[in-house]
């Protein structure tokens, strides 16, 4: 059974080491701020995703231990909310807006173009780990529809062509270096 396989690293040991782990600083700080109350779960998961880019099983096990929450509850919350991801993100992030204004302005054709060219659907990352495609509901830039976020920059008035170009630039940049 799994517990045997992990015998060297009991939940307690692993939790103890994480309380001091600098990578877990944010996560620990949020839990402490909330007095380790169970209602801090969502805030803590946010901190974990900010720190690691995604929420791993190991992190969930740790949070469950520290907040005295059932493992299944932590997993349920992490998968109920679509903002959380359990998969490591790609190096670059393209968040396509699928809000009403962007949809009627043709966001779907952009999504199709990306899927065709790079073989990824929303929620997936290219096999080389370069690009993650995500979707969002309204970026609040409806006036510039269709809009998307490329890494951290919001861009508007997109067409399949200029989006593909942007993604290609990311790829080419890799080839250069």
């Amino acid at each position: 059974m799994q517990t045997n396989a992990e015998a060297v690293d009991t939940p307690l040991d692993s939790a103890l080491s994480k309380t001091k782990d600098p990578q877990y600083r944010m996560v620990n700080r949020i839990m402490c701020l909330h007095n380790y109350q169970p209602d801090a779960l969502i805030e803590t998961l946010h901190a974990a995703q900010d720190s690691f880019g995604c929420i791993t099983l190991e992190t969930m096990r740790y949070i469950s231990h520290m907040l005295h929450l059932p493992l299944s509850r932590v997993y349920a919350v992490a998968t109920f909310y679509h903002y959380f991801t359990l998969k490591p993100p790609g190096k670059h992030r393209c968040v396509l807006c699928m809000g009403t204004a962007c949809y009627i302005a043709g966001a779907e054709s952009i999504e199709k173009a990306i899927t065709e060219k790079h073989h990824i659907s929303p929620g997936e990352t290219t096999s080389d780990g370069e690009i993650s495609l995500l979707t969002a509901r309204c970026l609040g830039s409806c006036g510039l529809a269709p809009a998307a976020i490329f890494d951290d920059k919001v861009m508007g008035q997109l067409t399949p062509k200029n989006v593909l170009k942007q993604l290609q630039d990311w790829r080419d940049h890799v080839a250069d270096t």
Binding site: M60, L71, R73, V74, Y75, A76
Partner: peptide, 15 residues
């Protein structure tokens, strides 16, 4: 617990 949501909801054990 019930994981995911909507039509994708499923019953699952622990993690």
């Amino acid at each position: 617990d019930i994981i995911h949501r909507g039509i994708k909801s499923r019953v699952s054990a622990d993690l």
